[in-house]
């Protein structure tokens, strides 16, 4: 009975969505704010990557909300998993010996990934990349040792420090604009020469803050999930 209801529901929804798809007017969608941004972004923001000028300039508040969502998810996850108590117990269990291949490749990859992540973050206003993409790579760099050596403890204090200060930096840059008489999150400083590393005003700073924040949040999330699963694996034995 329940299956039938579910089937009917999803069938109806599928029908509805397909009818919607059928109704689409063909041809290019109208582009109002998109066209205005393409016309003015170089003048107003000065970033070579126009998506970056949307993400951090025109819709900066969305990005703030977005890193807040990641932070909330990380906080809620540690609320659910109770990370701190868990890692204390996990650190008591001795670290397992790492296989030499795994261990040395992690040692090889860690600086590489770190450099790559930072490069992508710093060049976010010039190339397809930025804080989110680079932040994920940073988180990967810090997660790799956990994968190679299960049971290894991770420095939660450091993560909390980075995530706190990077998130605060984003808001403080926005508030600086507000208190200097401009609007909240208005880009600061001169635009500089478009296409250069030091250009686009305060956008690179914002992206560095976003990158560190995303990296810290994701490493915290992954460490929490990994910590609890390796702990559960210990408990099973």
């Amino acid at each position: 009975m329940r299956n039938l209801t579910a089937l009917l529901f999803s069938g109806g929804l599928a029908f509805l969505l397909m009818v919607i798809a059928w109704q689409f007017t063909l041809g290019d969608a109208p582009m109002l704010i998109g066209a205005a941004i393409l016309d003015n972004a170089v003048k107003e923001v000065g970033a070579a990557n126009l998506v970056t000028s949307v993400v951090l300039g025109y819709r900066g508040i969305d990005t703030l909300g977005e890193i807040a969502i990641l932070f909330t998810a990380a906080t809620a996850t540690s609320m659910v998993l109770g990370s701190f108590a868990m890692t204390d117990e996990a650190s008591e269990t001795e670290q397992r010996e790492d296989g030499s291949i795994l261990g040395s490749s992690v040692r090889l990859f860690f600086p590489l990934l770190l450099t790559l992540g930072l490069y992508i973050i710093v060049h976010g206003h010039l190339t397809p990349g930025g804080g989110f993409q680079g932040g994920v790579i940073l988180a990967g760099a810090f997660f790799l040792p956990l994968l190679a050596i299960p049971g290894r403890s991770i420095n939660h204090g450091g993560i909390a420090l980075v995530e706190g200060f990077s998130g605060a930096a984003f808001i403080l840059i926005g508030l600086t604009a507000l208190f200097s008489g401009q609007a909240f999150l208005q880009p600061l400083f001169e635009h500089g020469v478009i296409g250069h590393l030091f250009s686009a005003g305060s956008l690179p700073l914002l992206y560095i803050a976003v990158g560190l924040k995303v990296g810290a949040e994701l490493s915290g999330l992954l460490a929490n999930l990994a910590g609890i699963s390796s702990h559960a694996a210990e408990a099973e034995k």
Binding site: V51, V54, V55, D62, T63, I69, V214, L218
Partner: peptide, 16 residues
């Protein structure tokens, strides 16, 4: 249009 790309970036992170 750059706007939907920025929106997708946001919604992917929300999904994660």
């Amino acid at each position: 249009d750059p706007v939907p790309q920025a929106m997708v970036l946001t919604s992917i992170v929300i999904g994660v």
